[in-house]
């Protein structure tokens, strides 16, 4: 009896977490998966939702657009972040902490405020656009922020602080001795980074890639504010299926969510394969 009471006490400690996880993580997830295989009228098993997604151009374009902007902004962001973190990794003192503060501040600068700031900058009546018109600098004067390519700059913007902050600790893994040993063997610094530095950092780089990818994929506020439905992207489409002004289609929305989930899982699977390849030597 005493033991039972004790065990009961222990389980009570688990209850709050279990409640949240069960009712707001597991149940909705399962219900979403089930729903994706149901007609919206609620009757019977169907693959219709998935068939629609892979047949109707509207959804295919959404997937294509999403993949394009996600992958490209992740890669471009990662390259910028890599060199920035490299430049910062050897710095010390005040200058570095000032730069880190800037990164920390801008890493929280996202969503609606960020998009508004970019509208002020590059929107139809944006400051840079107006100035460019005055001085006749055409590439900027005709900048169209309200397009996939136009939004790209915002995606890259929010990938910079996040990725750099994540990459910085990875540079500490590259030991000074390796650089010096390579240098004494007449290796130039490009050779060092390609053959030793980057392979050693690869697990960290891939982890950062995952975070940036997930971050870009789930970006909602920016496209919703800038292009809404004129250019379709997965997150906007999914939300529309549940809370849109037109007819709500939770079945299709669930199926789209699952597609998005699959994209994440495939991406994580691929980076894990890559990671394993690079971890060969470094793990005991």
């Amino acid at each position: 009896m005493k033991n039972f009471k004790k065990a009961g006490g222990r389980i009570a400690f688990f209850l709050p977490l279990a409640f949240i996880i069960l009712f707001f993580e597991c149940v909705p997830l399962v219900s979403m998966i089930v729903k994706s295989f149901l007609e919206d009228s609620g009757s019977g098993f169907t693959l219709n939702n998935f068939i629609q997604i892979f047949q109707k151009p509207a959804y295919l374009v959404a997937i294509k657009n999403t993949l394009w902007i996600t992958i490209l902004s992740t890669v471009v962001g990662l390259i910028i972040d890599f060199f920035l973190a490299m430049a910062l990794s050897r710095d010390t003192g005040k200058k570095k902490s000032l730069y880190l503060s800037l990164l920390n501040l801008t890493s929280n600068f996202s969503g609606v405020p960020l998009s508004i700031a970019f509208i002020t900058l590059l929107g139809t009546a944006g400051v840079f656009v107006l100035i460019s018109k005055q001085i006749g600098f055409t590439p900027l004067a005709s900048y169209n922020l309200y397009s996939l390519k136009g939004m790209f700059i915002i995606y890259v913007y929010f990938q910079i602080p996040m990725g750099t902050l994540l990459l910085l600790p990875t540079f500490d893994k590259v030991r000074k001795e390796w650089k010096e040993a390579a240098r004494l063997m007449n290796a130039r610094s490009v050779r060092f980074w390609l053959q030793i530095g980057i392979p050693v950092m690869m697990p960290g780089i891939l982890g950062t890639f995952n975070m940036l990818f997930a971050n870009a994929l789930a970006t909602y506020a920016t496209p919703y504010l800038l292009v809404n439905n004129s250019i379709s992207l997965l997150p906007v489409k999914i939300v529309d299926m549940f809370v849109g002004d037109v007819k709500q289609r939770p079945g299709l929305g669930s199926a789209l969510s699952i597609v998005m989930l699959l994209i994440v899982m495939i991406e994580i699977g691929l980076t894990n394969l890559c990671k394993r390849h690079f971890e060969r030597g470094t793990k005991r």
């Binding site: 707001f24 993580e25 909705p28 997830l29 219900s31 979403m32 729903k35 789930a218 909602y220 997150p235 999914i238 939300v239 299926m241 549940f242 809370v243 939770p250 929305g253 669930s254 969510s257 998005m260 989930l261």
Partner: peptide, 9 residues
């Protein structure tokens, strides 16, 4: 987004 839409649904 997936968490929110699934909970809502």
């Amino acid at each position: 987004i997936i968490v929110a839409t699934s909970v809502l649904g």
